[in-house]
Design a protein around this nucleic acid. Sequence first.
DNA 1: GTTACTGTAACAAGATCGAGTACAGAAGGA
DNA 2: TCCTTCTGTACTCGATCTTGTTACAGTAAC
Lengths: 140, 140
Amino acid sequence: MTKSSRFVIATHVLALLAHGDGESLTSEWIAGSVNTNAVVIRRILALLARAGLVATQEGAKGGSRLARPAKEINLLAVYRAVEEGDLFASHPQPPNPQCPVGCHIQAALEPTLDAAEEAMAMSLAKTTVADVVRQVRGAT
Amino acid sequence: MTKSSRFVIATHVLALLAHGDGESLTSEWIAGSVNTNAVVIRRILALLARAGLVATQEGAKGGSRLARPAKEINLLAVYRAVEEGDLFASHPQPPNPQCPVGCHIQAALEPTLDAAEEAMAMSLAKTTVADVVRQVRGAT
DNA sequence: GTTACTGTAACAAGATCGAGTACAGAAGGA
DNA sequence: TCCTTCTGTACTCGATCTTGTTACAGTAAC
């Protein structure tokens, strides 16, 4: 099942920043479009800023804008910026080392799980924030 | 963004069933290898049985075994059997419909997210339970 | 100095997961 | 027929994570 919606929200935020032409947007304004609390937006903006995707200015007349052109930000970068941890959770408790299967199951499974996660990542990397904005504009 | 460990546990269970040669295993025995409670295993076995991957016999001398040859069970089938819901969570609250971006962001994002999930699925489909068992045996 | 912002801590509410207990029901064996 | 050995499932509990919220310190423009 699905855990956080941070990735989708983050993409929404970046699309907003890319939609306006380089102007700064305040977290309050963004929260209005996303329909959530400004602090939720600020938390996500902090993650995006740490990854170098947005630049934030504090103080009056402050706000955030893209740190790079929208076409140079792909969704994999966004995903990596806001989501952490592996896609597939492993055993909560380590398997029984006395069992020949339990002993090796994790190592045996790892390449497959890594490949699946990598496949997802490569697919996300194909789309940029600019593509998303184009889609949004086309749908108007 | 880590999902539940059901998928990894389920694969472990199927590998155990494939490892022994068609004998039934009890949930208690399986729980010993996975290092968890038998009820946790029974819950997962119920999901696998509903998907037609294992056959379970109730009562004394009961237990579970594979319903199909191990090489005909790929990990995508296992994933679909035990995990539900989309890989990517969408907005907890629907975005502001008055905002030109918020209004269309979900539809604009959907093809990309679906493609990423599909890419992961196709990658998982390449590996079968028989492959996992072979890996486990090779590591011994 | 005032105003308008961000950054972050703290907290509540809700969901979900793993783990565990309990018990009804099914099936084999004496 | 009764007992033992299993499964299936409902229910509960604690831990963890996420979202939403308030509060407040810090920063920058005017």
